[in-house]
Amino acid sequence: PDFTLHWNGITIHFKGIDEEQFRHLRELLDRGVSLEELEELAKELIK
């Protein structure tokens, strides 16, 4: 499924991740993950 997340004025689209992965990403963003960390995470998910 696809998810869209609005965070700090940025709209991020996640394609092909499951709800569990999306929930994990939201928790990280709510905790204050940096954009660099988010990019690293995205690379991991894409593999």
Rank of each mutant, 00 (worst) to 15 (best):
P1S: 13
P1Y: 15
P1R: 12
P1T: 14
D2W: 07
D2E: 14
D2Y: 10
D2N: 11
F3Y: 13
T4Y: 08
L5M: 05
H6L: 06
W7R: 07
W7C: 06
W7Q: 07
N8R: 03
N8E: 09
N8V: 02
N8M: 07
N8H: 07
N8S: 01
N8P: 01
G9L: 00
G9Q: 02
I10Y: 01
T11Y: 03
T11S: 06
T11M: 04
T11A: 04
I12Y: 03
I12H: 03
I12K: 03
I12R: 01
H13A: 05
H13F: 05
H13Q: 10
H13P: 00
H13M: 08
H13K: 06
F14A: 04
F14G: 02
K15Y: 15
K15T: 15
K15L: 14
K15V: 15
K15G: 15
K15Q: 15
G16A: 03
G16W: 07
I17W: 04
I17F: 05
I17R: 00
I17S: 03
I17E: 04
I17K: 02
I17C: 03
D18K: 05
D18I: 03
D18Y: 04
E19Y: 07
E19N: 06
E19A: 08
E20G: 10
E20Y: 11
Q21Y: 06
F22E: 04
R23Y: 10
R23S: 09
R23N: 15
R23V: 14
R23I: 14
H24C: 12
H24L: 14
H24M: 13
H24I: 14
L25V: 06
L25A: 02
R26T: 15
R26G: 09
E27D: 15
E27G: 11
E27A: 13
E27I: 08
E27N: 13
E27K: 10
E27T: 12
L29P: 00
L29D: 00
L29C: 09
L29A: 11
L29S: 03
L29I: 10
L29T: 02
D30A: 13
R31L: 12
G32A: 07
G32P: 02
G32T: 06
G32W: 09
V33P: 05
V33Y: 12
V33K: 07
S34C: 04
S34E: 05
S34F: 08
S34Y: 05
S34I: 06
L35S: 04
E36C: 05
E36F: 11
E36R: 13
E36M: 12
E37C: 04
E37L: 11
E37T: 13
E37R: 13
L38A: 03
L38P: 00
L38Y: 02
E39W: 14
E39N: 11
E39V: 14
E39M: 15
E40L: 14
E40S: 11
E40D: 12
E40A: 14
E40P: 01
L41K: 06
L41I: 15
L41F: 14
A42T: 06
A42M: 12
A42R: 05
K43N: 10
K43C: 02
K43I: 11
K43F: 07
E44M: 09
E44I: 10
E44R: 11
E44Y: 02
L45T: 07
L45M: 14
I46W: 01
K47A: 14
K47V: 10
K47W: 01
